[in-house]
Design a protein around this nucleic acid. Structure first.
Lengths: 342, 342
DNA sequence: ATCCAGTTTCGAATCGATTCGAGAGGTCAA
DNA sequence: TTGACCTCTCGAATCGATTCGAAACTGGAT
């Protein structure tokens, strides 16, 4: 159906190889011939057959993005990652093949061994992720997004969520808060021992403990009822609680609602600092102070590392991106009353 | 690097073609030979080279999902579509290549003409979408998600958003409401004349008008400030407003907040009915009555239509999926006071 | 006119798989 | 024993492109 290189060659009155050289530029072609070939290409709307091309060159300009299915179809946080990775890949001349791994890891293996992709970007890598050893055994260009216990000498990129937790804690401490609660992701996340969640929590709590502030933490699934439970529980556990650290995008707006419902003003009575993307924090009714995780930069870095490997660079590097604290409207100095009693 | 069919043939002591027949089942193979070949495949972890395969068969088991870039990287609504389409494709044995078209439509053309994909699923189709004639001219299996003015005889699937608007209006009318505001998507959406937004609004407003109810509408970009403006404006325009129809996921929670801020109780004083996915409506502090759009079914249908075409079926069908009204906690009979005066 | 160097183009082999026509081997009946 | 007929397997052509070695042509020098 689509025209082939032979059609172009015939129309231009040259041989196949000449057309190929015009396309690749691997050998000089006289201006006259080049123009004839280019016109034929234009006229036939010719594009080289991707499969045929990959068979010889070993490349096909496609990288895989392996998404885990664990969060189900309604996870909100992932789209920005997908978008960022998509555009980064496009900027570097790659197309993106999406793989889900609900059928085990076979999709990854198939597309790598079948030379369908030049490299793999593994998303949401867990501490002990079965996909990591698999990918390592395939010995293909790869980059991990997330920090596994053993990266098997593959490069990985991640946020420094421990630092995010610490930045939040330090900010609140500087404002004079001494009773601080930490509200994290779903219980399932902590049960699975997901690295970024655990690190953020520990980063915050250890900082608070070192400063001898009163603290407690709880997981929260983000449902309205559970947010109420979580907030109330933290208020009960921490005497004179005047601040919350929230690393749970879905719960964040509801946390503020619950505080308001309890008759507490934000930030006058209780300060709230979130760990979440900037636009998420800004979009709230009360724009929230937050430690923001540079999602786009993460994705760009991952794709760049991957592209580098595909192009033959071998530097297995590790990139940990620091969050930045943005102060908005949900944090204020601790109330004098609390300070006195603190 | 990866092993080829020749390696398998050598290890099994048969010819290449025999290996191929074992794989495809196109000719009978004796059990003994089959076992030897299968063991060799297993031992070498052989997978046929995707490109080499596609060159003869003309298929490669990949479909493209063409996403428009218009909404920028922070659109929240699209991930469920992506997920649903992804899993639907996987169930039917297809992998998904993601295309963004910020470089014009060339990505679509390249991958189709270059035989990189077997078919294209065009997302977020606009009324006059330049991608539609392009895709039609490529004469490849395709399905449109959304309703263009001219589908160029390609099958398309869409929600019946006019019906969604009507269902919301009828529900409120039945509850006795006679002053009803419609809060839609961003002004840009209406300026671009996006079909689903316009149809939903017109479906709602024409129903209200036919029932001689007082009504008005406004667009809203979803920012906190603009939500306040939009709600206040509708209250001003519609005498004795007692209900709102909201087709704007981002604004929805803020609408309720604004009403509360004005001292109005939901649903006792003002009813709110949303047009949005079910899980979105359920997740709110006050689970919202909504006309829900069956996102997963839409995606599944689209992929199934596309797969059918790839497999040779030619039925160019049109599928319009009806929304369903789910009554939750944000709608109640109109206050008696308003009814009297209505 | 002949030869040489340099430029440009061509022919043929090759990549990894699929698929058709035909050959090899076996069984059974005449 | 031979021929007919299956069943199973093989060799070779083919898909669309890339790439190497060599041929053809150009122009300038002798």
């Amino acid at each position: 159906m689509a025209s082939t290189i032979v059609d172009v060659a015939n129309l231009a009155g040259v041989s196949r190889s000449t057309v190929s050289y015009v396309l690749s530029g691997a050998r000089p072609i006289s201006p006259e011939t080049r123009r004839r070939v280019e016109r034929a290409i234009e006229e036939l709307q010719y594009r080289p057959h991707a499969g045929a091309r990959s068979i010889r060159s070993g490349r096909n300009g496609v990288i895989a993005m392996a998404l885990p299915m664990v969060h189900g179809p309604h996870n909100q946080v992932q789209m920005p990652y997908v978008w960022s990775a998509l555009t980064a890949a496009q900027d570097l001349g790659f197309k993106m093949l999406m793989l889900t791994d609900d059928d085990g890891e076979s999709a990854i293996r198939d597309s790598v061994v079948g030379s369908q992709v030049d490299g793999v970007m593994l998303m949401e890598v867990q501490r002990r992720d079965p996909r990591v050893p698999l990918l390592a055994s395939l010995k293909c260009p790869a980059v991990l997004v997330g920090t596994p216990d053993d990266s098997a000498r593959m490069p990985y990129v991640d946020f420094d969520t421990a630092l995010a937790g610490r930045l939040c804690a330090e900010h609140l401490l500087e404002l004079g808060h001494r009773g601080i609660g930490y509200l994290g992701q779903s219980p399932a996340t902590f049960k699975r021992d997901v690295a970024y969640a655990v690190h953020a929590r520990d980063g915050a709590l250890s900082t608070l403990r070192a400063a001898r502030a009163r603290s407690a933490w709880t997981a929260c699934d983000g449902q309205p009822g559970d947010v109420v439970r979580a907030v109330d529980q933290l208020m009960a556990k921490v005497r004179n609680l005047t601040a919350l650290i929230v690393y749970n995008e879905r719960a964040l707006p509801l946390v503020v609602d619950r505080l308001t419902g309890l008759g507490l003003r934000v930030p006058e009575d209780v300060s709230v600092v979130a760990v979440c993307p900037d636009d998420e924090a800004e979009r709230l009714r009360l724009p929230s102070t937050s430690a923001s995780l540079p999602v786009e930069e993460l994705a760009r870095t991952a794709v760049r590392l991957l592209a580098g490997q595909v192009n033959g660079e071998t530097s297995a590097s590790v990139t940990i991106l620091p969050p930045t604290l943005k102060i908005r409207d949900t944090t204020a100095p601790a109330p004098a009353a609390a300070r006195d009693r603190g």
